[in-house]
């Protein structure tokens, strides 16, 4: 089998005596969607934040495309082409779409000043590809709908050539139509060979979008299964009981 895009081995992190992630290992291959499931506080967001650079692991090893990677800040993660779309969207509400898209990686002119005209036209181009209905380029993103805001967040990942995409509850704030749009986009990115980690509560949605799912409970990994090998009920009992009925049987 090919080299995994991401290998996280024996990851541990604790906060004030609480072992939030306890010796968890997961991996991700190119063109694959891996879902992370579990209750609130199971440790899935915390686990993934060690990959996105928001948290620094206490111990464990991260390998990106086989190479050992030190990820200690969001900037490090970006160097490895890891892009994250957060549950809270991580947009600055008072800025417009292009300012958000390029936040932290602005295009500047020869004199070192922001090249807003260039950034705006780049934003126009990428938004035309991702969400043709997107018009409000000049308005602060607080004036946008949930779906439009989500497409700004996704555009940010796509524009900077993400190889590894982390999506934390990408459809939580969206309507039916917008959710379908995001699902389509995930499919397209997957076809382009990106590896995607998806975090969600919605077991049904995860069964449709993911190739494999990893279930966590109380900071520990319950198990990782290919979605075609298990039923939704199996997944649910992994989440709730912390064990796989099939394996147990």
């Amino acid at each position: 089998m090919a080299t995994p895009l991401v290998e996280m081995t024996d990851m541990c992190i604790s906060f004030g005596g609480v072992q939030a992630v306890d010796h968890v290992s997961i991996d991700l291959y190119p063109g694959e969607v891996v879902g992370l499931l579990g209750h609130n506080g199971a440790g899935k967001s915390t686990l993934i934040k060690m990959l996105s650079g928001a948290y620094k692991a206490d111990s464990g090893e991260i390998r990106i495309a086989g190479e050992r990677a030190r990820i200690e800040s969001p900037r490090d993660a970006r160097r490895f082409n890891i892009e994250t779309i957060y549950q809270t969207l991580a947009l600055a509400d008072n800025l417009d779409a292009s300012a958000n898209l390029f936040l932290g990686r602005e295009i500047v002119t020869a004199t070192g000043l922001l090249n807003d005209a260039k950034m705006e036209s780049e934003t126009r181009k990428i938004m035309a590809r991702l969400n043709p209905n997107f018009q409000k380029l000049k308005e602060p993103v607080s004036a946008l709908s949930g779906g439009q805001r989500q497409s700004v967040a996704i555009a940010r990942a796509v524009y900077f050539n993400a190889r590894i995409l982390i999506m934390d509850e990408p459809t939580a704030a969206l309507g039916v139509h917008e959710t379908a749009m995001v699902a389509e986009l995930i499919q397209e990115l997957k076809n382009q060979g990106l590896g995607i980690f998806l975090i969600s509560h919605d077991t049904h949605e995860m069964m449709e979008l993911c190739d494999r799912v990893s279930v966590m409970k109380n900071g520990k990994l319950v198990g990782t299964e290919r979605v075609e090998d298990v039923t939704e009920d199996d997944i649910l009992s992994m989440i709730i009981l912390g064990k796989n009925p099939k394996r147990a049987a």
Partner: peptide, 9 residues
């Protein structure tokens, strides 16, 4: 959005 700023590096 202070969190967004920090997450943007």
């Amino acid at each position: 959005n202070p969190d967004a700023a920090e997450l943007s590096g």
